[in-house]
Design a protein around this nucleic acid. Structure first.
Lengths: 119, 119
DNA sequence: CAGGATCCACGGTGATACTG
DNA sequence: CAGTATCACCGTGGATCCTG
């Protein structure tokens, strides 16, 4: 079987990107946001990256981009109607991810205790 | 909020890798497999990549690696007890991914029809 | 059989500067 | 304000050869 035929990769494809999950989280939680508001919510992201990741999400019809023709410019981003369908997916991943973090922590801890040695 | 704090990234982290989803799919569907069997199931993967991705999944306690001390070597891989917890996650992603593929196809199709122009 | 070791190409990401 | 343009780095993945 070829990797392209694995549908999991379809979902993975739109989520992969250093900032995409956090961008989606903000749009889901805080609702419609302007470009500058998203930037303020994620101080470490560069404008270039924010633009790029938003464009990619827009191309996949996950987010809506609304431009107000005025000066200074105003652009609002929001989760599209179709994008709402991602919510359960993100919820499952978030839940599993939360548990996984503690699972790995516990594994390492057990090892240290059993070995009586750090590192 | 820092991207590292997004738990979705935890799940993403263990799934990201060109061959990981397909490897997991085979281990879930076909059960325990030898290294060479996995290689045969995925003719396009290189030995280096198969080894690397399996090691990473093993490090996350998703797959078990059992070495039989014999000549020639025999190594079997399987989904770990903990790794089973990934099944619902993959199922949701697979389902969403399947629908997404047709959604995007439909979008492009609508565009072509509405515009009466190809490309 | 199941890797390990190298070398290399490519794309994603970041820093910075500029613009309508 | 909301981008675009350019340059540079680095990790992922691939090709190839070697080994217990």
């Amino acid at each position: 079987m070829k990797p392209e035929l694995c549908k999991v990769d379809q979902a993975l494809g739109i989520l992969v990107g250093k900032w995409k999950p956090i961008i989606l989280l903000h749009l889901f939680n805080e609702g419609t946001q302007r470009f500058s508001e998203l930037k303020r919510l994620m101080p470490e992201i560069t404008q270039k990256m924010l633009t790029k990741q938003l464009r990619e999400l827009e191309d996949e019809d996950i987010v809506n981009r609304v431009v107000y023709p005025q000066v200074p410019p105003k652009v609002e981003y929001s989760i599209s109607a179709y994008g709402q369908s991602l919510q359960p997916v993100l919820a499952v991943m978030h839940e599993w991810g939360t548990n996984h973090a503690s699972h790995i922590a516990k594994m390492k801890n057990d090892y240290v205790i059993g070995d009586s040695l750090v590192k």
